[in-house]
């Protein structure tokens, strides 16, 4: 494709998964205890989408990548200090709630509006990327809803691979049951891809890329519009952490086979 793609990646911040995540009730509804104080990371699913977008853009001259992100501005700023060093992109920030309890419909509306307002975005070349899932917003519908609002009909979910064919069409591998992939063909943009993990490793930090990105990111963060949550859009009756119990045992002299056998025995017993 001679003019390249306009790739918009939707992704926000989530608390660092190593942190203690404890749901609490607040006057504004459920939330995570001390969430604003905890370190955040780019949602891992969205991060895969971003790295795939950058890789695709690097192989199609004239392409450009935007990251559209709804989250607390201070948190977005923190996360950019890492993410901006990995790949080149332009940030379109929206200062608003990014908690796992935000309503997917309201979120999709805000993101779609932000995408429509991107200056110079060519909708005919638009590839909309995002996470198939989210580490905090697991409704699994946000990307579809954005696609619908933007009128993108070709949508693919659980994507692990996107390969551009010689004629410009896309071959897409989507995850299905049993560890298998469904192979689809798509003529080209506009299209929406909800990424699973993809195949790319996390890019190394490159401070030169970071410095270049940050020159545009910092002003963008300062200009970020504040999005108020839709009142009473959704109400939760209760929230609780997933049932899990961490049992740690340090072993150093067992072979991989022995460890695997032990885990299988434990699962069968459970």
């Amino acid at each position: 494709m001679s003019n390249g793609y306009h790739i918009v990646v939707c992704g926000s911040v989530v608390p660092d998964p190593l942190q203690t995540l404890e749901p609490i009730e607040t006057p504004a509804g459920p939330a995570l205890k001390n969430e604003m104080l905890l370190p955040a990371v780019l949602d891992p699913w969205a991060a895969h989408a971003l790295y795939e977008a950058a890789n695709l853009a690097a192989h199609a001259a004239g392409s450009k990548v935007w990251l559209v992100s709804l989250g607390a501005k201070a948190k977005l700023r923190q996360v950019m200090m890492t993410i901006a060093q990995k790949v080149s992109f332009e940030l379109v920030p929206i200062d608003g709630p990014a908690s796992g309890f935000a309503d997917a419909h309201a979120t999709a509306a805000l993101l779609a509006e932000a995408i429509q307002s991107i200056t110079g975005l060519d909708r005919s070349r638009l590839l909309l990327f995002g996470g198939w899932e989210s580490a905090s917003r697991g409704a699994g519908v946000t990307m579809q809803l954005i696609g619908e609002r933007l009128g993108i009909l070709d949508q693919f979910q659980g994507v692990d691979q996107l390969r551009v064919q010689p004629d410009g069409a896309f071959e897409i591998l989507e995850r299905i049951e049993g560890g298998r992939h469904q192979v689809s063909l798509c003529q080209g943009p506009p299209a929406l891809f909800g990424w699973a993990t993809g195949n790319l490793p996390e890019p190394r930090n490159n401070p030169q890329i970071g410095m270049a990105n940050m020159r545009a990111i910092m002003p963008a963060l300062q200009r970020a519009k504040t999005a108020a949550p839709a009142p009473d859009a959704i109400r939760y009756r209760s929230a609780s952490p997933p049932k899990q119990q961490r049992q740690t045992r340090i072993v150093k002299n067992l072979s991989a086979e022995e460890i695997a056998r032990e885990i299988v025995a434990w699962i069968e017993k459970a």
Partner: peptide, 13 residues
């Protein structure tokens, strides 16, 4: 100083 903040994240990784 975002240059230093990025540096911190990079070194930490």
């Amino acid at each position: 100083r975002y240059d230093l903040q990025m540096l911190v994240q990079s070194v930490r990784a």
